[in-house]
């Protein structure tokens, strides 16, 4: 029943959304892992999928989705937050956690400084609590503009703390991922943030609290192999590239081109990795419906 509703909704919203032509899909796949959510200078932006010229202001107002072909541009975490939570309900956590250079890795400080300038988040993820259609949730949102959303010690710690607070508050957790994976400059400490975040989500699961993972473009490597894949419910935005290994490395390994549409949200759904592909504009509403079914008081055997 629910499935039908979702399918109908999606059909309605994304009917022509993703039928990539080979070269085009490959091209998008090629460029998108390195770039950020930043739009080029000027008043107009060219849609990488349909080629239409889009008025930048309109594009941003339309949640950065192309009005012609529904191509989802990347969206900074704060912009996403704005249309996701009920106005005035968001409380940000742990903004002051500071990233250091534990291994004295070359050029890391410079990269961090550059990332702070390019983004309006303090690290690759912002966390806090808020309400979606009146349902309280703990939120974590990756930001691609901060070193490609990569997970170092601070990002891992912020997610773990957010999940632990969700357990105290008995709130569900929603995480929007967009990340190139682990943060190389923090070496093995970065790798173990995968275990840390997965461990925290394990505790959440033990407490029978809901976790919804929303995968957005791109989600790869250590993030796919940790929190992004552990949702009770897995949602993805149309066309988002999602995988463990990046397309370039797969091509090198297999010494051939990937089939058209490989590693997209739709590919992942076809292979059983994603419950549903949902248009950006529809996500708050879909989350609200899922949260309603999982309300604390609504569990079988408890008094409603």
């Amino acid at each position: 029943m629910l499935n039908n509703i979702f399918r109908k909704k999606r059909k309605y919203a994304t009917v022509s959304s993703y039928q990539p032509k080979t070269t085009e899909a490959q091209e998008i796949a090629n460029t998108s892992l390195e770039s950020t959510s930043r739009l080029p200078d000027g008043l107009w932006v060219k849609c990488p999928k349909c080629g239409e010229a889009l008025f930048k202001k309109d594009l941003v107002e339309n949640l950065r989705v192309c009005t012609y072909c529904q191509y989802h541009f990347r969206i900074p975490a704060r912009e996403r937050l704005e249309h996701l939570v009920d106005p005035g309900t968001f409380e940000e956590w742990d903004r002051d956690l500071k990233t250091v250079n534990p291994l004295d890795f070359p050029e890391y400080e410079e990269k961090l400084a550059e990332a702070s300038e390019k983004s309006d988040v303090s690290e690759a993820v912002l966390t806090g609590k808020g309400e979606i259609s009146g349902f309280p949730v703990v939120l974590a949102i990756n930001d691609a503009d901060f070193m490609m959303g990569s997970m170092g010690s601070v990002a891992g710690e912020k997610i773990a703390r957010a999940v632990e607070r969700a357990i105290q508050l008995r709130y569900p957790v929603v995480i929007f991922s967009t990340s190139g994976g682990a943060r190389m400059q923090e070496g093995i400490l970065s790798l173990y943030q995968m275990a840390k975040t997965s461990g925290a989500l394990g505790k959440l699961a033990q407490e029978r609290l809901l976790y919804i993972s929303v995968l957005t473009d791109p989600t790869f490597g250590g993030v796919t192999a940790s929190y992004a894949s552990l949702g009770d419910i897995q949602i993805a935005e149309p066309g988002a590239l999602i995988g463990f290994t990046g397309p370039r490395v797969i091509r090198q390994t297999m010494r051939k081109e990937l089939p058209s549409g490989a590693q997209t949200a739709e590919f992942n759904q076809d292979h059983g990795q994603i419950d549903m592909v949902v248009q950006r504009a529809e996500i708050p509403q879909v989350l609200a419906r899922l949260l309603r079914v999982h309300q604390e008081g609504a569990k079988y055997g408890s008094v409603l």
Binding site: M194, A195, S198, G199, L201, G202, A205, T224, A225, S226, Y227, A228, S229, L230, G243, F244, T245, V249, I250, T253, M254, L258, P259, A262, Q263, H271, G272, Q273
Partner: peptide
């Protein structure tokens, strides 16, 4: 790191090990 690994959910398989 081949396509078969992606199709069968390499990320999810690793993540479950970490969590468990």
């Amino acid at each position: 790191c081949d396509l078969g690994a992606e199709e069968r959910g390499q990320g999810e398989a690793i993540a479950r090990c970490l969590q468990s």
